[in-house]
Each structure stands twice: as C-alpha cells, then as structure tokens.
Amino acid sequence: MSVSNFFNGKYILVTGGSGFIGKILIEKLLRSCGGIEKIYVLLRRKKDNAPEERLKIITDYQLFDTLKKINPEVIKKLVPICGDLAKPKLGLTEEDTQTLIENVDIIYHGAASVRFDDHLRDAVLLNTRGTKEVVDIAMQAKKLVTFVHISTSYCNCDRFEVEEKIYPAHADWKSTIRLAEEVDQHTLSILSPKYIYPLPNTYTFAKSLSEHVVNDLCKGKLLATIVRPSIVVPSLNEPIPGWIENFNGPVGLLCGGGKGVLKTCYGEENSTFDWIPVDILTKLLILITYEKALSNDIDEIPVYNAAAGEKTVMTHKELMDYGRKSIWDAPYTNLLWYPSCSMVNNLYKFYAYFLLYHLIPALLVDGLLKAFGRETMHIKDFVHNMILTTDQYGPEQ
C-alpha cells in the first residue's frame, strides 16, 4: 500500500491548523493524499471571526493557490471545529466531541503557544493540559488509527546530546496541571524560575511535560508517535519555495537587521543552530504516520528528532553574513536605520550597545511620536527584543 492510498477514506483531526506548520501540513495532505474524506481543523473563535471565517482566511493564503488549480473542490474537505486548547475538554460542544469520537482516524496535535515568555500558568494550561485533553479525545475515538504529537527538540535543551527517547520528567505533569489550575498567578510567578529549572523558559518546560502526557496515557493503549522538530524555517520547495508567514526565529533576526531595527544581540558568533524546512517536516509527519500505523505496535511510542543534525550545520556568523549579502541584493523599503547587526558574547558590552543603538534611539522616536500626539511603541518593542535576545542566546542554553 502506498502512502497516499493509506490516507484514502480517512478522517483527520488537526490542532494548530492556523499555525505555520499546521497550514503546510493541511495543504500537503490535501494535495498529495487526495483520497482523504475530511480534515477537521480545531480553531478557536478569535475576536469577531468565527472558525468558519478563520478557515476561509487560511485557505485564501497564496499557499493554497497550487492546490486550488489542481483540485479546487478538495478545499471542501476542510471542516472547522470550534474549540480552544486552553479550556477544559478543549472548549468543545458535546455534539462536536461526539463527531470527533465517532469519525476520527488520525490526529495531528500541533497546537501550542511558542512564546518563551508565557506565564507558567498559560504555558501549562495550553501546552500541557491541552495535550492531555487532545489525548483524551484520542483515547475515546472509536476508529483511531494513530496519534501524532508534535513536540520540539528543545524540550530537552538542558542536555548536551538529545537522543530519540523520553527523558525523566522535570516535574509531575498531573501535579503541575493542578498547580496551574489552583494556585494564584502571583505565587506561580515567584515559584516559576525554581520550578522549571534547569529548563530556561516555560515553553520548553511545558512542552517537555506534554511528551510525558503522551507517553503515560498512550503507551500500551493506542498507536502514538512523538516528533521533535528543531527550528522550523521557510519551505525549501513546496508548495512555494521560501514560504513564511511569521517573523519567529532566525527569520525575525534577519528581518530586524535588514530593516535597521535590530543592531545587536547577545550570543556566540561561532555557535551553531539546527533548523528544518517546514515542507520537509510535513513530509516526515506524513511518512511517520504511515510507518507507525503499519507497525501496529502499541507497546512503544517512538520519538523522532526531526532535525538536520550535522548535515547542514551553520553558525550564527554565517547566517548574518548571508543576511548582509541578501540585503544588498534585495534591500528592504522604509528602513528605520542603516541595516547592520552584530552579535557579542560579552554581556556588559551587549548592554552598552543596547543602550546606544536601541534604547536611546527608541526614546528619541517615542518622544517625537508623543510630541505629535501619536501612540508610542518603540520602547516596548526594543525592551521586548532585549529580553528575547538574551533569553534565546544566553549562556544557559
């Protein structure tokens, strides 16, 4: 049986369908596995947009143009389900819950908050308890073939080498969920640094616990897989080479430097980082689903590190050099300042550069905005940038 034939007649649930990976995954499934019966997309109501409207916005992206030319009718296989990962029982109605339980064959759980500076409560309720709620649906699903949990390579960033296995938990996930539900926010803020240690932020901590949720609840009961992508970057080839929808990770640093907003960041130039193109990741997810389903082994939950490893190693210096070259080949419009960015490994030097190139200019710009009765913004943005650059590239990681 071929991979595409395996998906014939299948009902699929995708959480995180409005995210970067989710959009590419949905497009790839519809384009390459046309025999799929339906794809349920879990979407929360956002501002004034109902899930149906949000799904229409998603499929109007240029990303889906190739699919629409090949088979425009296949878009009708997408079915929005109104829910919220941060709420108990995913905020689903009884009718929608029953629909999923009766029909779903495959679940891709990719929804998560990827903010490093989330409060511990928010990170745990969304990333850890949310995973438990999705697993609860999987456990009840009458036709379930397999469950795929999208984790992150960095949930074990306290280790020098990360193997494809589940490591001992830094905390008990059941107790942590109870803490997030019952302890007041101020107390959690005080406890957070010690509680999540040695992990550097609430994101990696909550995602680490979510792996244990999947392992503890699914092992021996259903076919499940954990996939750990590293830094997910723009697509390599399909459906559009270089497609990106956000400014997270290295793309944000390059854009910040190109616009003249980011002048300095804290880190080691010769350190390397790992990334994987989003279209390669989605192909891996589909192949892993196929392989796990055929194995029919419920006693083991395989872990896949979806990372480039030593195949495409690049240092931060090389990345910035490529960025500088691309700025001259295709310069940005509406520059804030002359485009350049440096990385320093001395914290005191970094703060000096930050004051000189970020904070003082921000004060001047905000002063002018305030003088003309405009809303100020630069101080908040620059301070947030300082927090992120020191958090992501600090010596603890």
Rank of each mutant, 00 (worst) to 15 (best):
F7C: 00
I12L: 11
L13R: 03
G16S: 05
L25A: 08
I26L: 09
E27Q: 02
R31G: 01
C33E: 01
E37S: 14
Y40W: 02
R44M: 00
K46E: 15
A50Y: 08
P51S: 08
P51V: 08
L55M: 05
T59F: 00
Q62V: 05
V74W: 04
V74A: 03
P80M: 04
K89C: 14
L92N: 01
L92R: 02
E94A: 12
E95R: 02
E102A: 07
I106L: 02
A111F: 03
A112T: 01
R115N: 15
L125W: 02
N127Y: 03
Q140N: 03
S153G: 13
N156Y: 01
R159N: 14
K165R: 08
I166Q: 01
A169R: 08
H170D: 02
D172I: 01
S175P: 00
E182P: 00
V183F: 01
H186Y: 01
S189R: 00
P193D: 09
P193M: 11
Y195V: 08
Y195Q: 07
P198G: 11
S208M: 04
H212K: 10
N215P: 03
C218R: 03
L222Q: 05
A224G: 07
T225N: 06
V233G: 06
P234C: 12
N237W: 15
I244Q: 13
G249P: 14
K259M: 04
K263Y: 01
E268S: 10
E268H: 06
L284Y: 11
L287I: 07
S295F: 05
D297L: 04
A307Q: 07
A307N: 08
K317I: 13
E318K: 13
Y322F: 15
W328Y: 13
W328E: 12
T333E: 10
P339E: 12
S340G: 01
F350M: 11
A352L: 10
Y353I: 08
I360K: 09
A362Q: 12
A362D: 15
V365K: 00
G367S: 07
L368H: 11
A371E: 04
M377Q: 03
H378Y: 11
I379K: 14
K380H: 09
D381I: 15
D381F: 12
N385H: 11
T390C: 11
